[in-house]
Amino acid sequence: MFIDYAEILIRGGRGGDGAVAFRREKYIPKGGPAGGNGGKGGDVFIVADPNLHTLLDFRYKKDYFAQDGKPGGSSLKDGKGGENIIIRVPPGTLIKNAETEEVIIDADTPGKQHLLVKGGKGGKGNSNFATPTNQTPRFAEKGKSGEQIKVILELKLIADLGLVGFPNAGKSTLISAISEAKPKIADYPFTTLEPNLGIVRYKNYNSFTVADIPGIIEGASEGKGLGLQFLRHIERTKILLFLIDVTSENIQKDYKILINELKQYSPLLAEKPAIIGLSKADLLDEKELKKFKKKKIRNTDAPVVLFSSASGYGVEELLETVWYYISGNY
């Protein structure tokens, strides 16, 4: 199950209390203060784990508390510090303050560790409070509470290529044809209900990742259909591939609707380098194929590639164009 949103409570460990103790040694009836300091509370870290692809685990566990520090002991023995905890999230996860929705951490680099909350400081033992006028202090300092915060985890997939198109435009068929991903495919709209991520092996041991999101309909940027829920997953892609069914009654209008939805959601998204793929070329006869091979889309410089995932027609040309763009040649 793909889960891309979660809310969790995170707390650093409490610092251990300082100890009140005195030296008790043979022939020394009145030893001085010997209370040790409390241990520091554990910290909480976030790390992006490339082996994770969903926030599913956070649906079942909502609280993440680091271990408390141990109290100080006698004979000037300090308490042991609380163990840190590391929360692992998929790369591309944003960590936001749940109250302000301010982004605290962008966990976009696999393996990089981020400190999220600090544990409390351990209290000082009574050995720290001896003075010339009070050589036997009978008090110690309490440990401090750890930091606490409620956060939102929001996953944005990181991919080289993002597939954009109406429901049933052939996005899932394409990703299954060019990668090992096996999304659900059927001949009706909204077959894809959650994003799919595929890895495409290309010539000379090259590879790139593809993100397939549920189909966009007119009004997606306003929350219609499933588009708004998943549009954020193509925000981090390098390039976009607009997929339009070649049997559409008005290809130019379809492109206009798709690009307008992206602009309304995020103007920056609409400015990404793009390729236009006319899918389902296997449904055309020879005469129509020649006509569509010369097809141009107005108001864009994006190259247009005619292809069929079912028959394989034009797929190699499409992959060459995608790799050319991913390599920065645009």
Rank of each mutant, 00 (worst) to 15 (best):
G79M: 01
K80N: 07
G36M: 11
I46E: 02
L56C: 00
K26H: 11
I85C: 09
R59L: 09
G36L: 09
F22Q: 11
T54A: 09
P71T: 06
I85R: 04
D63N: 14
G92F: 09
I8M: 06
I86Q: 03
G73A: 13
V47E: 09
D43K: 04
F22I: 10
A21H: 01
G42P: 04
Y27H: 15
E83H: 14
T93G: 06
D17Y: 00
K61D: 04
N84Q: 09
D78T: 09
V20F: 06
G73M: 14
P33V: 05
G15L: 07
K77I: 15
F58Y: 14
A6D: 09
E25M: 12
G82W: 01
G42H: 02
K61L: 08
T93K: 07
G36A: 14
R11Q: 15
K77N: 13
L94V: 00
K96S: 12
K80V: 06
K30W: 13
K80R: 15
G18P: 01
K77A: 15
N84A: 11
K77G: 11
V47C: 02
R59C: 00
G92Y: 05
N37K: 13
V44K: 04
D63Q: 12
E25G: 07
N37Q: 13
K80F: 02
N51H: 14
K80D: 04
D57M: 11
L52T: 07
V47S: 04
G81W: 04
V47Y: 03
P50E: 12
G35E: 06
H53V: 06
A66L: 12
L55F: 00
P91D: 08
K26Q: 01
G82V: 06
T93H: 08
E83Q: 15
P91R: 02
G31N: 13
I86S: 00
A21R: 09
R88Y: 03
R59I: 00
G18E: 08
I95T: 08
I86W: 03
P33D: 08
N97G: 02
I28R: 04
L94R: 11
G39L: 06
G42R: 03
A48F: 08
G82S: 10
P90I: 00
R23T: 14
N84M: 03
Y64R: 08
I10V: 15
E99K: 08
L52I: 05
R23W: 10
H53C: 09
R14A: 06
D49I: 01
P91V: 07
A48L: 05
H53W: 10
F22P: 13
D43A: 08
N84D: 15
F22S: 07
F65L: 12
D57Y: 09
D68E: 12
I87Y: 02
K96P: 00
R14L: 03
F45L: 07
G39D: 11
D17M: 08
N37V: 05
G15K: 03
F65Y: 15
Y27V: 10
G41D: 04
F22R: 14
Y27K: 15
F65N: 13
P71E: 14
L94M: 04
L52Y: 01
I87S: 00
L94D: 12
K77M: 12
R11W: 05
R14E: 09
S74C: 11
G15A: 10
Y27R: 15
D78R: 11
P50F: 06
K96V: 00
K30Y: 14
P90E: 12
I95N: 07
G31W: 10
I10P: 12
G92R: 08
F58I: 02
D43N: 15
G79D: 03
F65Q: 08
R24C: 01
G39E: 13
G82L: 03
S74I: 07
